[in-house]
Design a protein around this nucleic acid. Structure first.
Length: 569
DNA sequence: GACGGCTCCAAA
DNA sequence: AACTTTTGGAGCCGTC
């Protein structure tokens, strides 16, 4: 059962605008109307959704981030939804629905970004006096749903793309729920970490004492009393003045040098990073009432990974400050990450039995060594990374022929994806997310390399760009399919936890509080730890099954039950 | 003063 | 000089 939900301007009389009404409309699986619409005042939305939710509908709405946060504020949770905006983005680009009307139609409002859409559409509903355009926006929801269902039905394997859209939509629900719940955060412990590294919190505009000390030592050693180490050009000049010839000021580059200035410089960089990225200012602006509320952006990365935005930097949370993530009294964190996810995904995706078996022994890299393909675990690791990223030189590149002999199907698959990208073609993940086409500049420079009056520079630049796009498409199939696995994992885990919760509110029972590409954190009462761990493992098995069918490929987890996030790995 | 490009670094 | 992917954010710096 599907229920579309959208707003409609009602009772517009000679320039007088009432508050918008909400329309609920039951739909069939093809998007046909199923019964009469229900029109309710905006203020009764939460109650109406809560009542209908008992029938377990799949809510069809334009944008989860527009509807769900206010429902959660009213303590109303939904089980399932169709996020039309996220689904549209996938269907518009996917090779498996390329011939659908949805994909061949001209660009429309569904092709616009989330923020832009919110800005224009909400404005249109609230303030636009033109009744026709207001109604267009509302009715659009049902038409779009029907168009999407037709596109799915027309795909060669509707189940796969259908699963992807369900998982993507479930991910949007998870993101909203995690934003709502927040990640438990102890400002006092965060402050202790900052003070132990930087010194006491300085007054505004002042440098912390330890940072200042490092800066003064650096200036002395370089004999540069006004040096600003935050300015790369300033720093390069000062370094070369004392005979240190470097072309960049990256830390790993500086570590190779021997000079009394290097230690305070690296110290300055480390402390400065901590202060600017996760210092007191970050704490003041991102943590309130003991919770960090990061802003996730599902589908924010071309490969299907999530992005985050809003200054919190949720997906780059440094290990250094994770000890400030502390479970509530009587609660624990169950932290689980999918071990060696991407290489395992490649093994399963390509159906390379040898590589799957190497992984099923436990440690995939050790399994590769055991097969005789390479000599050390470290070699196995750089070789696999090289295969997935497209290393051409260094040890990774050098080991590729050996790896290819041992695992021809796996390596053949990423090589084929790279060649497709170099030709300017799209590649597609297991469930049907396709890579974007390269831009006009890329095409122009490729065409130019085959034209007249070409110089060697033109050709080598074009080839370089082609290889670069090939590395992107090579990685796309692996990173994108891994993201699909993670979405299925999280979607199934969410439902598993919800089932266990037996009707209690999200934050009163075990719930997801953090997600980072291949890792989840569940905040749970101590006595529920065992059941949570079981749900996490069941969900991982289910994700593997959904993507690749019955084993052989397994996706083992590393699970830790901890009081603070810093204790996990 | 706004803006974009650049460098650097955090994560997976 | 590097030669391996995807991101977000802070600060610098030149341009408008």
């Amino acid at each position: 059962m599907y229920v579309a939900i959208f707003s409609r301007q009602q009772g517009i009389v000679a320039g007088q605008v009432n508050s918008p009404a909400i329309v609920l409309q039951r739909l069939t699986g093809t998007g046909a109307l199923d019964g009469a619409e229900q029109v309710i005042p905006g203020g009764e939305l939460a109650a109406a959704v809560e009542a209908l939710e008992r029938q377990h509908p799949r809510w069809v709405w334009d944008d989860t981030s527009r509807w769900y946060p206010s429902l959660l504020e009213a303590r109303v949770r939904v089980e399932r939804c169709v996020d039309l905006r996220l689904s549209h983005a996938i269907l518009r680009n996917s090779a498996v629905t390329a011939r659908s009307s949805l994909a061949t139609a001209p660009a429309c409002s569904w092709d616009r970004g989330a923020t832009e859409q919110i800005g224009t559409r909400v404005q249109a509903t609230l303030f636009d006096f033109d009744i026709a355009s207001a109604d267009d926006v509302a009715e659009d929801t049902i038409a779009e749903f029907a168009s999407q269902r037709a596109a799915i039905a027309g795909a060669a394997e509707p189940a796969r793309i259908g699963l992807l859209l369900a998982a993507e939509s479930a991910g949007a629900l998870v993101a909203a729920e995690m934003m709502h719940a927040g990640l438990p955060w102890r400002p006092d412990i965060h402050n202790e970490i900052l003070e132990s590294q930087l010194g006491p919190r300085p007054s505004p505009g002042q440098r912390p004492s330890r940072l200042n000390a490092a800066l003064q030592r650096l200036r002395e050693e370089l004999d540069a009393p006004t040096l600003n180490p935050d300015s790369p050009s300033d720093l390069l000049r000062a370094l070369s003045a004392v005979g240190l010839m470097v072309t960049s000021t990256r830390s790993w580059e500086l570590k190779k040098l021997t000079h009394p200035a290097i230690q305070p410089l690296l110290e300055y960089k480390k402390l400065s990073r901590l202060l600017t990225a996760n210092g007191w200012h970050w704490l003041d602006t991102n943590v309130r009432d003991g919770r960090f509320h990061p802003e996730y952006v599902p589908g924010g990365v071309v490969t299907g990974r999530w992005a985050s935005t809003g200054g919190g930097g949720a997906l780059q949370l440094p290990r250094q400050i994770r000890p400030a993530v502390v479970a509530d009294p009587g609660w624990k964190f169950v932290v689980a990450d999918a071990s060696q996810l991407e290489p395992r995904i490649l093994a399963a995706l390509s159906g390379d039995r040898g590589m799957v078996e190497a992984g099923n022994a436990g440690d995939l890299y050790a399994g590769i060594v055991a097969s005789g393909a390479v000599e050390t675990r470290e070699q196995a690791k750089v070789a696999m990374l090289g295969a997935m990223y497209g290393a051409t030189s260094g040890e990774g590149g050098r080991l590729m022929p050996q790896l290819e002999r041992a695992y021809p199907r796996a390596i053949g698959m990423v090589e084929a994806a790279a060649r497709s990208g170099e030709r300017g073609e799209v590649v597609t993940t297991r469930l049907g997310r396709s890579s974007p086409l390269p831009g006009a500049a890329w095409r122009a420079s490729q065409a130019e390399a085959y034209g007249e009056n070409v110089t060697g520079t033109d050709v080598s630049r074009a080839r370089g760009q082609a290889r670069s796009w090939g590395r992107f498409t090579r990685n796309f199939i692996v990173q994108g399919t891994a993201a699909e696995w993670a979405l299925c994992w999280m979607a199934d885990l969410r439902l598993g936890l919800q089932k266990q919760a037996a009707g209690s509110w999200i934050t009163d029972s075990p719930h997801l509080v953090f997600f980072m590409h291949d890792e989840v954190v569940v905040h749970t009462p101590v006595d529920r730890v065992g059941a949570v761990e079981a749900a996490i493992r069941t969900a991982a098995d289910e994700a593997g099954y959904l993507l690749f069918g019955a084993p052989p490929a397994t996706f083992p987890l590393t699970v830790a039950t901890v009081d603070n996030y810093g204790q996990a790995k």
